[in-house]
């Protein structure tokens, strides 16, 4: 009988080998995801400032920020920004996907071009939008003036509501390809014979969409909305580049306010509390993603 080395014998055990194989992934997850998250939570429970670890103060930072009208405003706009942007991206992304699912001349090029807003560096596209939304030099205003549709430049960023809505439009523009490409993949996975059967039964286009397309796109919709909502809720670059949270804090969101308090102002503990506070919303969204994936 040939004796096998003890190590090799142990590696033959599925339990040992299984754990061993997930170690690299676990290290990466713990180091890059869990550690920063736990550090953020810990900092939010301390009086840490830049260069000073501070002391444990329990939930005092949370009490402070929940009493702060700027934080409440930022929380409100973060949620509003996310809901509006997700609704816009969902409707327009689905429409774009339905369009690009058709075979027409140049459809391959169109699909590639559609991805441009998604692949362009966020800061670069934000700077381009900053120019497009400029109160004096906006190309949008210039075009509308030439078409005699407006009489003076549009003040996109100079008033609270116009600034809020402008940022939502920019976010929709940027995130649209993510939805469109996701829906396009979903549409192409729907068996054609379902539509043929529906046609034989006399269903029109709208009925086919309601009874076949939309129900079969629901799982991917859940995933797209949940992931995109997490990205949108934690959006920083677009807003910081275009408005810096202004005018009059009208476009502050969790991330910009956390950055302002923690980095510029040096209040790491309070900044961490602001950054950690939307975590409950994100956990709920993540729950829906996991559930949807399991169901699928």
């Amino acid at each position: 009988m040939i004796r096998r080395p003890a190590l090799a014998a142990r590696l033959d055990s599925p339990r040992v080998l299984g754990y061993l194989l997930i170690v690299p992934a676990a290290i990466i997850l713990l180091g890059l995801l869990a550690y920063p998250l736990l550090l953020g939570i810990w900092l939010s429970l301390t009086s840490a400032t830049i260069g000073n670890p501070g002391q444990f103060i329990g939930l005092q930072n949370y009490a402070t920020i929940f009493a702060d009208p700027i934080f409440r405003g930022a929380a409100w706009y973060s949620v509003f920004y996310t809901i509006c942007a997700e609704a816009g991206k969902l409707v327009l992304g689905l429409a774009l996907a339905l369009l690009l699912n058709q075979r027409f001349r140049g459809y391959r090029v169109s699909r590639a071009l559609m991805l441009l807003p998604w692949v362009a560096p966020t800061v670069l596209s934000a700077l381009a939008w900053l120019w497009l939304l400029d109160p004096q030099f906006s190309a949008i205003s210039w075009l509308l003036l030439r078409l005699h549709l407006i009489h003076s430049n549009i003040d996109f960023l100079g008033h609270p509501w116009s600034a809020r809505m402008s940022l939502i439009v920019v976010n929709i523009w940027r995130g649209l390809p993510y939805f469109a490409i996701g829906y396009l993949a979903g549409l192409q996975s729907i068996p054609k014979d379902l539509y043929e059967a529906a046609a034989i039964d006399g269903a029109d286009g709208w009925q086919a969409f309601r009874r076949i397309t939309w129900p079969l796109l629901m799982p991917i919709t859940t995933i797209l909305v949940a992931f995109s909502s997490i990205f949108t809720l934690t959006d920083f670059q677009l807003i910081w580049t275009i408005t810096h949270g202004g005018p009059t804090d009208a476009t502050q969101v969790f991330t910009t306010l956390a950055y302002q308090r923690a980095i510029s102002g040096g209040q790491l503990g309070e900044g961490a509390a602001i950054a950690v506070s939307p975590i409950v919303i994100m956990i709920v969204l993540a729950f829906f993603v996991v559930r949807s994936v399991r169901e699928k």
Binding site: P135, Q136, D155, G158, G246
Partner: peptide, 16 residues
């Protein structure tokens, strides 16, 4: 003032 100053950044007045 000209319209839009509440949306100005540090380069806006230079350009205008």
């Amino acid at each position: 003032m000209i319209d839009g100053v509440a949306g100005w950044d540090d380069s806006s007045n230079n350009k205008a």
